[in-house]
């Protein structure tokens, strides 16, 4: 089994959480995304969308993290990460589809508008343009350009923060009545959402679950106490963490204003 991934990517974190929970250890290929390693002609043959992660299992190429996670549970069912009852599985899938239905985009916009734009802006203009031109999806390219140029003033930011806040609200409500997102057992739903909550924490936004949403805090603690959290922790890049912490401190009051509006 082989995994093409990246240390800080939320989608890669999600798949590594599932692999670790199941005790699977693929051969890892770490791609440097800023150097365009996910858009080389060779990689595009594996993953036409030019994104990570890509899993190769018995010669079969599986792409898209949500699909990969369900695949892993279908192909390696011994440690099951989906509840057995159809009703609970439906609840689980309502959670796993959230990233695909907007939350992932919100996470990218938020991360760039607060922090990663600084890495981009430190480069020559021509290099920024080269990296933008590499993005196959025009909407992703447009979002990226706006957040690099305008930061928190980009028009996409309000919607992204609203989407993020709504997801947090829904999770908090669920976690008031159940230990894990899809019921009493840990499932793909928890693995799918943990990277997005960790990202908020890295961006200095942990205060979002200090008040009414504090059921998130307990879930976060339980999730981090599991052995599979190594799938996030062991890959964290200290340079990125430092950047996110510093950049969010610089715009903390503006962020708070946007998030409580």
């Amino acid at each position: 089994m082989e995994l093409y991934h990246n240390n800080m990517s939320v989608c890669a974190q999600k798949v590594r959480l599932v692999l670790a929970e199941k005790g699977l250890k693929p051969l890892e290929h770490h791609l440097n995304l800023r150097a365009g390693e996910a858009t080389t002609p060779q990689y595009l043959k594996l993953n036409p969308n030019g994104v990570i992660p890509t899993l190769i299992d018995h010669g079969r190429v599986i792409i898209e993290s949500t699909v990969i996670c369900e695949y892993l549970d279908d192909a390696y069912p011994d440690i099951a990460l989906r509840p057995p009852a159809p009703a609970d599985r439906a609840l689980m899938r309502l959670w796993t589809r959230l990233p695909d239905a907007g939350l992932h985009q919100a996470c990218g916009i938020t991360s760039f508008a607060i922090a990663f734009r600084q890495q981009m802006l430190a480069q020559p203009r021509a290099e920024i343009e080269r990296q933008l031109a590499e993005k196959p999806d025009p909407q992703v390219r447009e979002n990226l350009r706006a957040t690099i140029e305008l930061g928190l003033d980009a028009p996409q930011v309000r919607k992204a923060l609203a989407d993020y806040r709504r997801a947090i609200g829904r999770m908090a409500q669920q976690l008031e009545s159940t230990t894990w997102l899809a019921g009493s057992g840990y499932s793909l739903a928890d693995a799918a959402l943990l990277p997005y909550v960790c990202r908020l924490e890295q961006l200095g936004l942990g205060w979002l679950w200090s008040g009414a949403h504090r059921s998130i805090a307990g879930w976060l603690e339980r999730s981090k106490a599991r052995a599979n959290y190594a799938g996030i922790r062991d890959y964290l890049d200290p340079k990125y963490l430092e950047l996110m912490q510093r950049a969010s401190a610089e715009c903390g009051s503006r962020l708070r204003e946007l998030l409580t509006a």
Binding site: R60, I63, D74
Partner: peptide
């Protein structure tokens, strides 16, 4: 499992 992954690659595009 592989067939289901192929199937879900289609169904998730609708949501995405």
């Amino acid at each position: 499992a592989a067939g289901r992954a192929r199937m879900r690659l289609w169904t998730r595009q609708l949501d995405d």
